[in-house]
Design a protein around this nucleic acid. Structure first.
Length: 491
RNA sequence: CGGGGUGUGGCGCAGCCCGGUUAGCGCGUCUGCUUUGGGAGCAGAAGGCCGCAGGUUCGAAUCCUGCCACCCCGACCA
């Protein structure tokens, strides 16, 4: 193979990068820590956007767009929020460049120093709440349920394609409500929506839960999350939904008159998922042969590879292939006939394999003769020969099978890598030997949480919403605990 | 910011310790012929200010000095 992919067992990080690069999802950029999302990766993102956007709209949300630049002073308004984000902000200080003194390059023109610095948004709560203050006077103006698709910048020290880059794409929802209950309901509604999207479309099983104080979003009252488990046994936060209480309303003096003619601060939520989900997708399903995509999000669901040798075989094969292509297309299946000349069939097989196309059909002279098609599944890498007659039904069913079986496999992996422990020794042993989620009792203190993090690098991923667990005692301090919580080493 | 490393055709590297003709190799690219059911074979070709600046020397990719950039490992994080 020309571009060999490092096996997962040998070096997981290297494997991940190899998969992303060979599948042409992304490339490195000239700016350290940033990434170029290539067409294959962007189409995937567009598919994710389309589904999520539909879900947001079904639940009464509207899209809008707020500016990239935020006045520096805005960020400072909410105390916890500043503390959380100040350390990773890109700051614009000048509005133009000039040729430098020695004539060899450019430098910021000192005369163009900005009156107030602008921060490139790390998230948009502040600038949005500045607007909400102006838009909201009465309970009749509520709720406001806005989403925006945008890029954000967080100046990171250590970066990895999709999983952590300085600039990334995401959606951020920002809602304003008249009552606490309504805002909490919204937070949970979105959490469910995210879980449904990630499980049903991305085929990644998730745990829904709530973050501890130390892992909470800066400025939130409660942060809810969905947590997924990657193939190397590390957890990954796949989405967050925050109940912001009245923190931002207070910071931005956003009040409304309620039905009892009293002035009240507005209740808020915010929530987001990012291109990081693409990283989660890669790390959940892919294998040593490259990317594996769930059919429901794959830009190309089926690829048709014609095989012929002589000129007279060519038209025969291409006609048969095109007929299949039309039938699949009419059924609404994203199909591509790969009739490129110059690449040989074997080469195409490998290319589509590393790019994760769920189903490959091959049609050669023998198939035309026999009225058959060769069908190969990307997930199992198995091949079968099927009758050309019923191929559309067969393909449609296979796509559904793949979607389901990717989820099932990931769910099985997760349950095999979720361990319930009662002692700290067991806890440490589990982390070392097999990783994954570890369910243990915790006394609810930040001290114990920090100690565990320092000693084992494992963090509390969440307090699961789904309870049904018996009370117990903290595995270290012996203090009472009402439920077990999910620990893991995480991305 | 600490600790380590690397800069040589598009990509990945060798050469450097021990200075000496025309700087090699693999992949990719181009041309031609043969090929086409799992990344083809052969033949030929193009492509380099050896990171930048100075120095030593008859002569520097190689030795010396300074600078720059990037990567890895730590502290911070969706």
């Amino acid at each position: 193979m020309a571009d060999a992919i490092t096996p997962r067992g040998e070096d997981y990080s290297k494997w991940y990068i190899d998969v992303v690069l060979t599948a042409k999802l992304a490339d490195y950029s000239p700016v350290r820590g940033c990434m170029i999302i290539r067409p294959n990766g962007y189409q995937l993102w567009e598919n994710m956007q389309r589904v999520l956007d539909g879900m947001f709209k079904e639940t009464g949300h509207e899209n809008a767009y707020f500016p990239l630049f935020i006045p520096e002073s805005f960020l400072a308004r909410e105390a916890e929020h500043v503390e959380g984000f100040a350390k990773e902000c890109a700051v614009v200080t000048h509005s133009r460049l000039r040729v430098s003194e020695d004539g060899t390059g450019l430098e910021p023109d000192p005369d163009s120093r900005l009156e107030e610095n602008l921060v490139v948004r790390p998230t948009s709560e502040t600038i949005i709440w500045d607007s909400y203050r102006k838009w909201i006077q009465s309970w009749r103006d509520l709720p406001i349920k806005i989403n925006q698709w945008a890029n954000v910048v967080r100046w990171e020290m250590r970066t990895r394609l999709f999983l952590r880059t300085m600039e990334f794409l995401w959606q951020e929802g920002h809602t304003a409500h008249a009552t606490e209950q309504e805002a909490v309901d919204e937070t949970l509604l979105i959490l469910d929506l995210y879980a449904r999207f990630v499980e049903d479309y991305m085929a990644i099983p998730v745990i829904k839960g709530i973050k501890t104080e130390s892992e909470r979003f800066a400025g939130a009252v409660d942060t809810y999350c969905i947590e997924a488990l990657m193939q190397d046994g590390k957890a990954l936060q796949a989405g967050t939904s925050h109940f912001l209480g009245q923190n931002f309303a207070k910071a931005f003096d956003c009040t409304f008159q309620n039905q009892d003619n009293e002035l009240e601060h507005v209740w808020a939520t915010s929530w987001g998922v990012s291109t990081r989900l693409i990283g989660a997708l890669v790390m959940t399903h892919s294998d040593d042969h490259g990317l594996v995509l769930p059919p429901r999000l794959a830009p190309t669901q089926v690829v048709l590879v014609p095989i012929f040798r002589k000129e007279e075989e060519k038209s025969l094969v291409l006609d048969a292939a095109d007929k299949v292509r039309r039938e699949l297309s009419e059924r609404g299946i994203a199909v591509r006939l790969d009739d490129r000349e110059g690449q040989r069939p074997g080469w195409k097989f490998t290319e589509h394999e590393v790019q994760g196309v769920p189903v490959r059909l091959a049609i050669g002279p023998r198939d035309v003769q026999n009225g058959t098609v060769e069908l190969a599944r990307r997930d199992t890498r198995t091949k079968e020969t099927v009758a050309a007659d019923g191929v559309v039904d067969h393909v449609a069913k296979t796509l559904e099978d793949i979607q389901q079986s990717l989820f099932d496999r990931a769910a099985e992996f997760r349950s095999e890598h979720t361990t319930t422990v009662d002692s700290y020794d067991e806890f440490k042993d589990t982390l070392e030997s097999k990783g994954g989620f570890v369910l243990a009792h915790w006394d609810g203190t930040a001290e114990t949480e920090a100690r565990i993090k320092n000693e084992t690098k494992a963090t509390i991923r969440c307090l699961p919403l789904q309870k049904g667990d018996e009370p117990g005692v903290d595995m270290i301090t012996g203090k009472p605990s009402s439920q077990r919580v999910y620990f893991a080493r995480a991305y």
